[in-house]
């Protein structure tokens, strides 16, 4: 675990940069996390992030297919929102653990 300052707040992240306490997350922190990996958040990004957080809080095991079937964005769209890591990068910005899914 390492402490990291994001948007003026101290948060704990793991070795891969994922927040370890999802409740510490805020929109400002998300914006800072996104900026670090070169993503500028649009309304569509926020919709995906909110969906991911909601699913995580409900205990849903996330997969690419689930997000693709969420009605928010199709899989191709998800790849263009989070290039090179549709699930990995979106989860990182959403402040939730990296999804342990092979799909």
């Amino acid at each position: 675990m390492v402490q990291k300052t994001l948007a003026g707040k101290n948060v704990e992240v793991n070795d891969e940069g994922y927040m370890t306490t999802p409740s510490e997350w805020s929109r400002d922190i998300a914006t800072a996390l996104a900026t670090e990996i070169g993503i500028t958040l649009t309304d569509k990004h926020w919709e995906v992030l909110e969906y991911l957080r909601k699913s995580f809080n409900e205990g849903v095991a996330l997969s690419l297919r689930k997000v693709g079937n969420s009605g928010i964005v199709d899989i191709k769209g998800l790849y263009s929102l989070f290039p090179g890591g549709p699930l990995k990068k979106s989860a990182l910005i959403a402040g939730i653990p990296k999804p342990a899914s092979c799909v």
Binding site: Y79, G85, K88, C102, V103
Partner: peptide
């Protein structure tokens, strides 16, 4: 293959 594209 899917895992590969998901990892960029």
């Amino acid at each position: 293959s899917n895992g590969a594209v998901m990892e960029g």
